[in-house]
């Protein structure tokens, strides 16, 4: 069983970031950034506040065009892709935004059904069943008729994940998945991420600075630094913590503030 492959060449990297510079207005956030994510890999982008983690994620999902360089998702440069191609690639990935970004006027079921109804031509009952199963994946079965305002932040986040999972994306992007969650819910989310990765071989790019999550889920960490405006280390989180001699890497992994 293999994962869906949107690009023509054999087992290409689903995400390739090549010499990318990003910024807002006059402000350059990261420069000459390059990394790639292999199929089925969980890569965490980490670093202190303001280092550009979320900016990189926005660029990779095609919401912020790079100043320089290119970003390929399934081999497609989102900044230069045509409408049709963009829509096709976007359907192959799911995004969990920091705030969840559920539509407040719709119930959970309607939120999750939103991408599904468009992609799969199913009768009402099967669609409902599928939606409930997606909610069950994030332990929210039974809550389908709730509005986002009627649930806690953690539940909203899980529901948003169910929506991101709706189309069985081959890539999942997470922006600070544990932000605003209690440690137990956060650990549950980590477990869910691993389970999805194993069951579906989903490639994941996760922005977080939660060390516990990083150790639990990351195959590789891309560590960014504000002053360096780019990557200061890439690798297995445990190895980086134990072996890296870079004081900035040590500061991050040992929660040691700079003097």
């Amino acid at each position: 069983m293999t994962q869906a492959d949107a690009s023509p060449s054999p087992a290409p990297a689903p995400i390739q970031v090549e010499d990318v510079t990003l910024g807002y207005g006059q402000n350059i956030i990261v420069e000459h950034l390059s990394f790639s994510v292999t199929p089925g890999e969980i890569v965490v982008i980490a670093g202190g506040s303001g280092c550009g983690k979320s900016t990189v994620l926005m660029a990779v999902i095609g919401l912020l065009p790079p100043r320089q360089g290119r970003i390929l998702v399934h081999g497609v440069d989102l900044a230069r892709a045509g409408e049709k191609e963009l829509a096709r690639v976007r359907r192959s990935f799911g995004v969990l935004f920091q705030s969840g970004a559920l539509l407040g006027s719709m119930t959970l079921a309607e939120n999750v059904a939103l991408p599904l109804a468009d992609a799969a031509h199913l009768d009402r009952r099967t669609l409902d069943l599928l939606v409930r199963l997606k909610l069950a994946l994030v332990d929210l079965d039974g809550f389908q008729d709730y509005l986002p305002a009627e649930m806690s932040g953690g539940m909203n986040k899980r529901a948003a994940l169910a929506r991101a999972l709706a189309l069985d994306p081959s890539i999942l992007f997470f922006d600070e998945p544990s932000a605003g969650l209690d440690p137990v819910t956060s650990a549950e989310l980590d477990r869910l991420i691993l389970r999805l990765n194993q069951a579906q071989g989903t490639t994941m790019l996760i922005v977080t600075h939660e060390l516990d999550s990083i150790y639990a889920i990351a195959h590789r960490v891309v560590l960014l630094d504000k002053a360096a405006k780019g990557i200061i280390a890439v690798g297995d989180p445990h190895r980086l913590r134990d072996d890296s001699r870079d004081p900035r890497v040590q500061e991050f992994f040992h929660r040691r503030p700079r003097d």
Partner: peptide, 10 residues
């Protein structure tokens, strides 16, 4: 394995 639907609070 699905749980029965719960009535929303409002």
């Amino acid at each position: 394995r699905l749980a029965p639907p719960m009535p929303p609070p409002t």
